[in-house]
């Protein structure tokens, strides 16, 4: 007669699983990296002179080592900037003004292809130039970057809403080609000056 083998106790199974669980809890992280994506300009070529940009097209944001913001636009006295109104001001500056208005950047004619139809559009040539000191804190730098990115994103949203009835982000998911058009019409016109020291060091 064959004896039945005794059943193996599964009582400690839970403990083993617990050990594994705790191991994974300790050695892994869950954080998904997120942040502001930017593209750096390629290294400067000494043989190439940078293109001249008309003063009227530039909106200069200066941040000094005391984290204070100074805004310079052609035809206006430099004035202290405020992070609260920065997004609104930049949006106003970058929004194309047609017909040509000397208080705002130049506009350039272009055509957008929307659902197969050609639509004329006036693209703003405005550029936001950002300069900071070595003593500027990273926090305020990111906040300004954030507001500038926000201004461009909102302008893109407005255009996407006007022609496609959705936000730019939604458009990017559903119709990449159309989104590229919007991107072309409202470029991420943020430039960072070559590093320089000004306004005293830390």
């Amino acid at each position: 007669m064959i004896r039945e083998t005794p059943e193996i106790s599964a009582g400690s199974m839970a403990d083993i699983a617990f050990l594994l669980l705790i191991f994974f809890l300790v050695t892994t992280t869950m954080d998904v990296d997120s942040g502001i994506v930017r593209k750096l300009p390629p290294p400067l070529d000494k043989n190439v002179t940078p293109p001249k940009i008309i003063k009227r097209n530039i909106y200069t944001v200066l941040i000094n080592s005391a984290d204070m913001i100074l805004i310079t636009v052609k035809g206006q006295e430099p004035k202290p900037g405020n992070i609260k109104t920065l997004r609104r001001d930049v949006k106003e500056f970058l929004r194309p003004h047609y017909p040509d208005n000397p208080n705002f950047p130049e506009v350039e004619d272009m055509t957008l292809e929307i659902n197969g139809k050609k639509v004329p559009y006036h693209k703003s040539k405005g550029i936001v130039s950002m300069q900071n000191d070595r003593g500027t804190s990273y926090k305020i730098y990111i906040h300004v970057q954030n507001e500038l990115a926000g201004a461009v994103r909102e302008l893109r949203d407005e255009l996407a809403q006007q022609y496609y009835g959705m936000t730019f982000k939604e458009l990017l998911k559903s119709d990449e080609k159309a989104a590229k058009q919007i991107q072309k019409a409202v470029p991420m016109a943020i430039s960072e000056a070559e590093p320089a020291d000004f306004g005293g060091s830390k």
Binding site: S34, G35, I36, L40, P41, P42, G135, Y138
Partner: peptide
């Protein structure tokens, strides 16, 4: 401070690693 961040960014440009992300 931005000083060290700027130095790193300049170095990244030289290394031709132009796509960056500011983690926030």
């Amino acid at each position: 401070k931005m000083g060290i961040v700027t130095d790193v960014k300049q170095e990244l440009r030289k290394a031709n690693a132009l796509k960056i992300n500011y983690s926030t």
